[in-house]
Amino acid sequence: MEWIVGLQALLQATVRMAAPLTFTAVGETYGERAGVINIGLEGLMLIGAVTAYAVAFASGSIWLGVLAAGLAAMVFGVLFGVVTITLGANQIVTGAALNLVGLGLSSFIYRAFFGTVTDRAIQPLETVKTPLLSQIPVLGPVLFEQNLLVYAALLLAPLAAWVLNRTMLGLAIRSVGEHPKATATAGLSVIGLRYGAVAFGALLAGVGGAYLSVAYANQFVENMVAGRGFIALAIVVFGRWSPLGALWASLLFGFTFALQLRLQAANIQIAYQFLQILPYVATIVAMILLRGQSAQPKALGVPYTERA
């Protein structure tokens, strides 16, 4: 029975580690489906992480922190939109700038306001057991014995998929990313839809960052996002630009990450650096295997101008 306990812990870790990636990648999926690529997710997550921590620390409410994190990241998402959508500047470039700003600003805020505070821990987000469902062997604890933000991430993906694939709004977002001119001809606002998608994406990246500081680490640490924003970017591609695909890809990443920790814990003698690069190699391999069935939005990265 020991291996069942081990498997359960491994899968629980997988889900926990996947959650911040899911938030961020689902959000970015929306942005990219609308035709805007934002490589500044790392910066947005850092802004989310520091905001959530600061607000939760000051107010004592984690949920207020999460809300503030989403809003703060959304503000930066809208600024990103002003530069890339309204002004039509290059999206990769602006995203790179956003990463620098996010890294600098989050560390700056943290040091300016918490540089001298020594007791900085906040109360962790509690684990909530779903009645009955958490009794299911293995799957119960893995899926139904987590904190509320994990549930939110798990529910978010199918909901986002439904909106994107089954509603008029989703259709509009998808068409903006494929044929913006046709969308405009049909009387929809390309600019408005793109702003909406980018702001929503930024909000979720902020929540993903908030997860790391208030639900996971119970504190903020500089650069604590540790590359997850870039991984989320890969997950969007990996997940074929679909919210459910993003969820599965996040789980796969979470699994490889948890697995390498587990192998080290079990004293498996292999150069641990190779285990650590496993997720990144896996991404490239998966991209190679899934190539050809291109799902990339046709207008991705192309600024839209009404006059052109």
């Binding site: 910066g43 600024l79 530069v83 470039v93 602006t94 790179a96 700038a97 956003l98 990463n99 620098l100 700003v101 996010g102 890294l103 600098g104 600003l105 560390s107 700056f108």
Partner: peptide
Amino acid sequence: FSLQGLIIA
């Protein structure tokens, strides 16, 4: 980092 990012933005 903030200054560098802001300059580019």
